Amino acid sequence: NEEPLPEGWEIRYTREGVRYFVDHNTRTTTFKDPRNGKS
């Protein structure tokens, strides 16, 4: 039961299956979860 991502964020996966987060607001990507700060 995960809380929803902030507005404008999306979860994607690399070809290796590593989860990362896309911030469409700033057009950046990060491996850090914007909901809780954990990677």
Rank of each mutant, 00 (worst) to 15 (best):
E10S: 09
G8W: 04
R27H: 15
I11P: 02
V18G: 06
T28Y: 07
G17K: 06
K38V: 15
F21H: 00
H24I: 08
L5P: 14
R12K: 12
N1G: 13
G17T: 02
E7H: 13
F21K: 00
E16H: 14
R12C: 12
P4M: 09
F21R: 00
E10W: 03
T30P: 01
R19V: 12
N25R: 06
T30E: 02
P4T: 09
E7Y: 12
T26L: 06
N36W: 11
Y13K: 05
E10F: 06
R19G: 05
Y13P: 00
P34Y: 01
E16T: 14
G37L: 07
F31Y: 12
P34K: 01
T14M: 04
K32H: 12
T29F: 15
E16M: 11
K32I: 13
Y20W: 04
E2R: 10
W9A: 00
W9L: 02
N1C: 10
K38Q: 15
S39T: 14
T28K: 10
D33H: 03
R15Q: 13
D23W: 03
V18M: 10
T26M: 06
T29N: 09
T26S: 09
N25T: 10
E2C: 14
R12S: 06
E3H: 10
F31I: 07
E2N: 11
F31M: 10
T28V: 09
E16G: 14
T26E: 06
H24E: 05
G17A: 04
F21A: 00
R35A: 03
G8R: 05
P6V: 03
R35N: 03
T14W: 03
V22L: 10
R27C: 15
W9D: 00
D33T: 01
I11E: 10
N1T: 13
L5S: 02
R12P: 00
E10G: 05
H24W: 12
T28W: 06
Y20A: 01
R27I: 07
G8I: 02
E7M: 12
Y13M: 07
V22E: 05
F31N: 07
S39H: 15
V22M: 09
F31Q: 07
N36L: 12
R27K: 15
P4K: 09
R12N: 06
E16C: 08
E3R: 09
P6D: 04
N1L: 13
R19D: 02
T26D: 04
W9I: 03
Y13L: 07
P34E: 01
W9K: 00
N36F: 10
V22Q: 05
R35H: 03
G37S: 11
T30H: 09
G8D: 03
V22D: 01
E2Y: 12
V18D: 07
S39F: 15
H24S: 08
F21I: 00
F21W: 06
T28H: 09
N1W: 13
G37I: 10
E3F: 10
S39W: 15
G17Y: 04
K32Y: 11
D23G: 01
I11A: 08
I11H: 03
R19K: 12
R35G: 03
E10M: 06
P6F: 03
T26Q: 06
V22A: 05
E2G: 10
Y20N: 01
F21M: 00
F21G: 00
H24A: 07
F31P: 05
V18L: 13
Y20E: 04
G8V: 02
I11Y: 05
P34D: 01
N36E: 15
T14P: 01
N36D: 15
S39K: 12
R12Y: 08
G17R: 05
E3T: 11
R15S: 14
R27M: 14
R35C: 03
T26G: 06
R27A: 14
R35Q: 02
R27T: 09
K32T: 12
G37R: 06
D23A: 02
T30F: 04
T29W: 15
T28F: 08
P34V: 01
T30K: 03
K32N: 13
R35V: 03
R27N: 15
E16Y: 13
G37N: 13
G37M: 07
K38T: 15
V18S: 07
F31W: 12
Y13F: 10
D23T: 01
E16W: 12
G17H: 07
E3Y: 08
V18F: 11
S39C: 13
N25C: 13
E2T: 10
E7F: 12
E16S: 13
E3S: 10
E2L: 11
R12I: 06
T14F: 02
R12V: 08
H24C: 08
E10H: 06
T29R: 11
T28G: 05
H24D: 04
F21L: 01
E2V: 10
V22T: 04
G8Y: 05
N25Q: 08
N25A: 08
P34S: 00
E7T: 12
T30N: 03
D33L: 01
W9H: 01
T14L: 04
E3P: 11
N36Q: 11
V22F: 15
R15M: 12
N1A: 13
R12M: 10
T29L: 13
R15D: 13
K32F: 07
I11K: 06
N36I: 10
R15P: 14
D33V: 00
D33E: 02
D23F: 04
V22K: 05
Y13I: 07
R27W: 09
G17E: 04
D23Q: 05
L5E: 02
W9G: 00
K38R: 07
K38S: 15
Y13R: 04
R15C: 12
W9C: 00
